[in-house]
Simulated assay, not measured.
Amino acid sequence: MRFVRLMVIGAAALAASACASVGARPGTGGGRPADVPAPVTDPAPIVPGTLRPYQIRGRWYRPAEQPDYDEVGLASWYGDAFHGRPTATGEPFDMHALTAAHKTLPLPGLVEVTNLANGRRVVLRINDRGPFVEGRIIDLSRAAADALDLRQAGVGRVRVRYLGRAPRLGGGQPLTPATAAAAVAPAAPTPPAAALIPAPIPASTLPVASGPVWVRGGAFLDRAEAERLAADFPGVATVRRDGELFRLTLGPYPDAETAARAIRGLSDRGVRGAEASDTP
């Protein structure tokens, strides 16, 4: 029993040491800017099972501790269709909280996300897995997308830095706008032409009235990619050209409940931001 107790004490000391390094980056001498959150002193345990390798749509993902994670890529967001549903940590998804989904960082964890178009920054609690669309590195809650001014565009180029373990509750907070120097990051490779780009339309709740309901499934840079997805919804999917994009629409469905099932089907295939509408 004493041996077990010593192991527990030792593990706690290691966790405290790791938390003390949150916010300190190589070359900073351990200091942190005034607007960076203080080190977490009450870290939540990593949720069992969330560091195991997993497979989505034939691709393997291998979560791991990544203390130096610092990446530039595309961010998307998700909201109404997932509000209240359990996340990968078991916490209910709250689209009004400052949270996000990531494919491989420990859960729950903290990340600093910077919108490279306007310098806005926010610290987010990572409590879910995703996004599973080529070219995207993080999926934001609706509130996080608003804080970064990304919601209307639907997608944007961001820098994501891992800060370490998250506190037991909360952990999200907006930061002051980054300076131009802080927002500069190495250029990310251009996403493949087949990368799915969500349509720049605001999310909406499902129509209340019964009757024909359509699902706007997003927009693609490559028609073949859109048509491959459309093939999974025979009889209800259409693909139309809109400038340089190809927009996918499903429907009409007889009611909002059936449309909601179609939105969940798109989500299972890695498509976020699909919404129901009373018009095609």
Rank of each mutant, 00 (worst) to 15 (best):
P186S: 11
Y69L: 05
R120S: 04
A182F: 12
N127F: 05
P198Q: 02
L124H: 07
D70S: 13
G154V: 04
L124T: 11
T89P: 06
D149P: 08
P192Y: 00
L107M: 10
A178Q: 14
P174Y: 03
F93G: 01
R121L: 08
E65I: 06
G172N: 12
L148F: 00
P92H: 03
E112M: 15
D128V: 02
T179E: 08
A199E: 14
A183Q: 15
S76M: 07
G172C: 09
G135L: 00
D94S: 03
A144I: 04
R159G: 14
R129V: 01
G211W: 12
D128K: 05
T176K: 15
N127S: 05
A117N: 12
M95P: 15
R161T: 13
R161F: 08
A75Q: 09
A81F: 03
P191H: 04
Q66Y: 09
A97M: 05
G164C: 04
T179F: 06
D94I: 02
V155G: 01
N118S: 09
V184R: 15
G211V: 05
A75I: 03
E134Q: 13
R129K: 09
P186Q: 11
V72L: 06
S76K: 04
P189T: 14
T176I: 11
D80H: 15
P106Q: 12
G211A: 05
Y69K: 07
V158H: 13
L110R: 15
G109F: 02
I137K: 04
I197V: 15
L110V: 13
H102L: 07
V158G: 02
L74G: 09
